[in-house]
Write a protein that binds this DNA or RNA. Structure first.
Lengths: 252, 252
DNA sequence: CGACGTCAAACTGCATGCAATTGGAGCGCC
DNA sequence: GGCGCTCCAATTGCATGCAGTTTGACGTCG
């Protein structure tokens, strides 16, 4: 497989892109929890740029679904609903099946070594924090996507994987993703063997089980807006009462 | 199926969003051909906003892959390579199979009526321009995605469908997508019957045949950068000569 | 005639400034 | 104490201004 020219879409060294990367990482490592406020001034000051740039960066992250942006309101780290989390995983399964289908039997020795090295790193990180483990596991999948040389696929897999990361921080039990490392190894092995059918099945099962381990129940553990929880009950009362409920919810 | 609350990610009535929508439509209707220049000043003046806003809009469209943005250079409508076009269609097939899988047997009568009405509109538009036909065909798929009530799926299907639209304007023969209307009807019928397997197969075949009809050959008809065409030959000459070639290419 | 160097216009990258909106603290009323 | 009102600090929405970069036109020279 001839190497395609490097992506035109690759993120340049703009200040905007730098801030995007930093925030993305902070979000997926849960340094910024879902719901955390992201005022433009504060970001600008923190990164040594003007509000204009911070604003632009927030716009990009909103396009990726990592940040929620509402007119005249402070941007916040996205808080996906449980259903959205499930949807994201469903999409991710299909995309990553596509990835391994394209990759099966087409990896160079160097690429396989790179993948193995990454999983080794995951192994070594088992003692560390949960956040780092999750990030490394996610990066394994993104590394796979990169090997397809398809910029579009890379972009979508990355985005949806980051979103899944985000939901893991909302809904998962701690230490829920550690045993997935063996599954990563199995996937590499099947890719190397070129067993297209098997590797698609492995990937499907892998992601599905991560999702099922993580998205334990439609009732989130923490961080969910009271407003969302109460939403289904809103139909039962008059709209005036609902407004009051929301005030209370926001306060709590 | 209970209706989920409307998406938080829906585009607000920002000036930025307005410009995005306008440009998106102009691009997929080929009013703006791939490679067309999009200077911030001109956009700002045309839409009655400042450069800041135009710039922000371009950033969003770049994130969607409709626009190419390079540092210190005028933004241009994206010119996907043939391979990228093929990749986009592959991704689209998987995503839309997911859509119809979720939808099979779960559509209300009203929704089926809406879909049929849309296809009727496609039928009526057969006499009109190619661009309108393509736009309507694309919107049919996006309408389907909307019915899943999954904002993420809507976003990805929309994006990738727009990208495919874009590539059609680059690589397809004229009048290549007309006979697809019957396939749309067949898909609606299978959805209504709730035949999950069949409808996934239909969608797969539908998109695959559109792609095959459209992406006729790795040699594009027009609009492709001379630079890309000459790239494979560049290895034959010294790198100094290549630089000169590129100068010539850019000029022509 | 074509290659090369120079320069001004065009354009982008980014910061700053101002008007408009929000939200929440404080205060009076029931 | 709870509810509603007013008002101000915090924050966003957007335009403008300035500095740096690119483009391509022009003049010069081989």
């Amino acid at each position: 497989m001839a190497a395609r020219p490097s992506s035109k879409t690759s993120e340049s060294s703009d200040k905007v892109s730098v801030i995007c990367r930093a925030l993305r990482r902070a979000i997926i490592e849960q340094a910024l929890e879902p719901g955390a406020k992201l005022p433009e001034d504060a970001l600008g000051e923190r990164f040594g740029v003007s509000r204009t740039i911070a604003r632009h960066a927030l716009g990009q992250l909103a396009a990726e679904g990592l940040v929620e942006l509402r007119r005249n309101r402070i941007a916040v780290v996205a808080t996906p609903s449980w259903q959205e989390a499930r949807d994201a995983f469903d999409i991710r399964i299909e995309l990553e099946r596509l990835v391994v289908r394209q990759l099966a039997g087409k990896l160079t020795k160097a690429q396989i070594a790179e993948l193995n090295a990454h999983v080794d790193a995951e192994d070594r990180a088992r003692g560390g924090t949960d956040a780092v483990s999750i990030r490394l596991a996610t990066e394994f999948h993104i590394l796979l996507a990169h090997m397809t040389n398809s910029p579009i696929l890379v972009r979508y897999v990355s985005e949806v994987a980051y979103r899944c990361c985000l939901t893991l921080s909302l809904y998962s039990r701690p230490h829920s993703s550690e045993c997935a490392i063996n599954e990563h190894r199995a996937i590499i092995a099947a890719l190397a063997r070129g067993d297209e059918v098997k590797v698609m099945e492995l990937m499907h099962h892998h992601l599905d089980s991560v999702a099922n381990r993580a998205l334990v129940a439609p009732t989130p553990r923490r961080g969910r807006d009271l407003l969302d929880i109460l939403a289904p009950y809103a139909d039962e009362v008059t709209s005036d009462r609902v407004v009051k409920l929301t005030k209370i919810a926001r306060r709590g």
